[in-house]
Design a protein around this nucleic acid. Structure first.
Length: 422
RNA sequence: GUGGACGUAGCUCAGCUGGUAGAGCUCCGGGUUGUGAUCCCGGCGGUCGUGGGUUCGAGCCCCAUCGUCCACCCCA
């Protein structure tokens, strides 16, 4: 047998039901905040990510699925959504003198070692705001997440970590100071941090190596370098979060792995998923549009890792998502199947919201009713010889003690429509 | 990319110092002429991840490979 490709995953019906329900709730919430859905391609020019995400980042250096197409163009399966989003809005003139709130969803691709909650094809839902700077937008994005966790019942399992990286010029000065401090200590750093010292020194800050962390105790801190505007923004954001009653922790070691972030960065973190603890992360990226060739435009957003949110959701909501069918129609004898099909088609027309499953594959009535029970259906319809002659079906109540009754088409449609209202 | 654990029925797992593979659940049939719980009886189901090697003999030992998981790394 041919197996699936490493790091790729099948989502089977039991999981797909939960998936759909969670995904729908996220999108519904985003629509409720006035965000508009957009659809973006899976393939982009490789250059979009090397420029947008950053040459020195791990994503660009070793995790991209990059290929050359028949025309010789370098194209890449998107490893994240923000760069594509900027590209699309820019390309269609939607960033011109206006504020845009948009969201997108779909698979992203990164060549990493697979683990639970970390796949090579994984699903993100992201929200982005363009054309509006300031802490208010950041606060909106964050409180939107918080409402979502509460909605999904996972707020108890996550906490918010917050930091500010300052403007790009501030970050540059801070980076130099950090390198100056760490260079004499390079022999004491762990191997990864040594490598990062030249490529991406800020990432040393969130090293998990205890010895490296000890060395960082006396390192220069970002907060001392921030300019007045960044400080004011950060203070304003914290004030807004207090007002919105969104709990947060400041983490001045929080650094994102993508180069485009400026000022506000945040991560929603859980300790219940092993080392894949970040379920949602984002921040402000006021320089990105310009980096990709547009006019200077403020931007801010976040992305949710859907598989991880689903894993968390499952911890407290182990019961299966119910209702794969409302009505299950049993056919006593194959001779009645055609009649039953026609009856059901008419019923679908009169009761379009019902989920009706017609038994397939024959078998005894006993087994058909067992199937009916397993689908979670409320009612079983039975079409047998006597019913068909009278142009009616038997209605059996699978979840209550009510006695079985016979009904004609119109009576049944009216009854079922009424019943699923409540 | 580094280190480690694990791959046995559709699912969850057992399998002794190497002697020719088992349970529960599921599924199917019967106990019921056309009525879903439970119960009882019976049955289907395996080239033990794959490929090599050692051995009279391998699920078990060795090597390789693929996959999953854990930590590192990375990130959502």
């Amino acid at each position: 047998m041919v197996q699936s490709v490493r790091g790729m995953r099948d989502v089977l019906p039991d999981e797909a039901r939960r998936w759909r329900s969670v995904e729908d709730r996220i999108k519904y919430l985003m629509l409720g905040y006035g965000y508009e859905e957009i659809h973006l391609p899976l393939l982009e020019a490789t250059e979009l990510f090397s420029r947008g995400v950053g040459e020195g980042t791990d994503i660009v250096e070793k995790e991209m699925y990059t290929l050359t197409d028949q025309e010789g163009s370098g194209i890449t399966l998107r490893p994240e959504g923000t760069a594509s989003c900027v590209r699309a809005l820019q390309e269609h003139g939607l960033l011109f003198n206006q504020t845009q709130r948009v969201f997108y969803s779909g698979p992203m691709f990164r060549y990493e070692r697979p683990q639970k909650g970390r796949y090579r094809q994984f699903y993100q839902i992201g929200a982005e705001v363009f054309g509006a700077g300031g802490a208010e937008v950041d606060a909106e994005l964050i409180s939107m997440c918080y409402r979502l966790w509460c909605d999904l019942g996972i707020d108890r399992r996550v906490h918010l970590e917050l930091n500010t990286l300052g403007s790009s010029s501030v970050r540059k000065r801070y980076r130099e100071a950090l390198v100056t401090y760490l260079t004499p200590l390079i022999d004491q750093l762990d191997e990864d941090s040594q490598r990062r010292l030249s490529r991406n020194p800020l990432r040393i800050l969130d090293s998990k190596n205890p010895q490296t962390q000890a060395l960082l105790e006396d390192a220069p801190v970002m907060s001392a370098f921030l300019d007045e505007e960044s400080v004011a923004n950060y203070e304003r954001l914290k004030e807004l979060l207090n007002q919105l009653q969104v709990p947060y922790q400041q983490n001045d070691r929080l650094v994102r792995g993508l180069d485009y972030y400026t000022d506000t960065v945040f991560e929603w973190v859980t300790t219940d998923l092993g080392s894949q603890g970040t379920i949602c992360a984002g921040g402000r990226y006021d320089g990105l549009v310009e980096m990709l060739g547009g006019k200077p435009t403020p931007g801010s957003g976040y992305a949710i890792g859907l598989e991880r949110v689903l894993l968390l959701h499952e911890l407290d909501h182990a019961e299966r998502e119910p209702r794969s069918a409302d009505v299950y129609c049993c056919v006593v004898d194959p001779a009645q199947h055609g009649w039953a099909m026609h009856f059901i088609e008419q019923l679908r027309e009169l009761a379009p919201d019902l989920r009706i499953r017609l038994h397939a594959g024959g078998g005894k009535l006993k087994n058909q009713l067992k199937r009916a029970d397993q689908t979670g259906a409320q009612w079983a319809l039975i079409a047998g010889d006597s019913e068909v002659t009278n142009n009616r079906v038997a209605v059996k109540f699978l979840r209550t003690d009510q006695a079985q009754v016979e009904m004609g088409l119109n009576e049944l449609a009216a009854f079922l429509n009424n019943a699923i209202q409540s």
